[in-house]
Amino acid sequence: MTHPVKGIDHCFALVDDLDAAAAQYAALGFTLSPRGTHSAAKGTANYTIMFPEDYFELLGVLEPTELNAARRAMLATKGQGLHAIACRIDSAEQAAEALSELGIATQGLGSFSRPVPLPDGSEGIAAFSTVSFTPDDLPLGMVFMCQHKTRDTVWVPELLTHANTACGLDAILAISETPESDAARFARLWAKGSVSPEDGLTTVTTGPNSAPLILATADRMAARYPDLDLSATAKGGFTVLRVKVQSLDSAKDCLLASQVTFRETATGLAVAPEFSAGVLLEFVPA
Rank of each mutant, 00 (worst) to 15 (best):
V5Q: 03
G7N: 02
I8W: 01
D9C: 08
C11W: 07
D19C: 09
A21K: 00
Y25M: 05
F30V: 14
T31V: 14
T31D: 12
L32S: 11
P34Y: 07
S39V: 12
S39A: 12
S39I: 11
A40H: 15
T44I: 11
P52H: 10
E53K: 15
E53G: 14
P64A: 10
L67V: 01
A69N: 10
A69E: 14
R71G: 02
A76M: 09
G79Y: 06
G81K: 01
L82I: 02
H83Y: 09
C87Q: 07
R88K: 15
A95F: 01
A96T: 02
A96R: 10
E97R: 15
A98F: 05
A98Q: 15
E101P: 00
A105H: 11
A105G: 04
Q107F: 08
Q107T: 15
Q107S: 14
G108V: 04
V116Q: 13
P117C: 09
L118G: 03
L118T: 01
D120H: 10
S122E: 13
G124V: 05
A126M: 14
A127G: 12
T130Y: 08
S132T: 06
F133A: 08
T134K: 12
P135M: 09
P135I: 09
P139V: 01
P139N: 03
V143I: 15
M145S: 03
Q147T: 00
R151V: 13
E158W: 13
L159R: 14
L160D: 09
T161S: 13
N164Q: 07
T165W: 06
A166R: 01
A166L: 04
C167D: 08
C167I: 12
D170K: 13
D170M: 03
A174T: 05
S176H: 00
S176T: 01
F186S: 07
R188I: 14
W190R: 09
G193S: 09
S194A: 15
G200S: 10
V204R: 03
T205R: 15
T205Y: 11
T206W: 00
T206Q: 05
T206K: 03
P208H: 11
N209I: 09
I214P: 03
T217K: 02
T217R: 01
A218T: 06
P226K: 10
L230P: 02
A232W: 07
T233V: 12
K235T: 14
G237V: 04
G237T: 06
T239C: 13
T239E: 11
L241M: 11
K244D: 10
V245I: 00
L248D: 03
D249S: 11
D249G: 03
K252P: 01
D253R: 13
G268T: 09
E274M: 10
V279E: 04
E282G: 06
E282P: 11
P285M: 06
A286P: 02
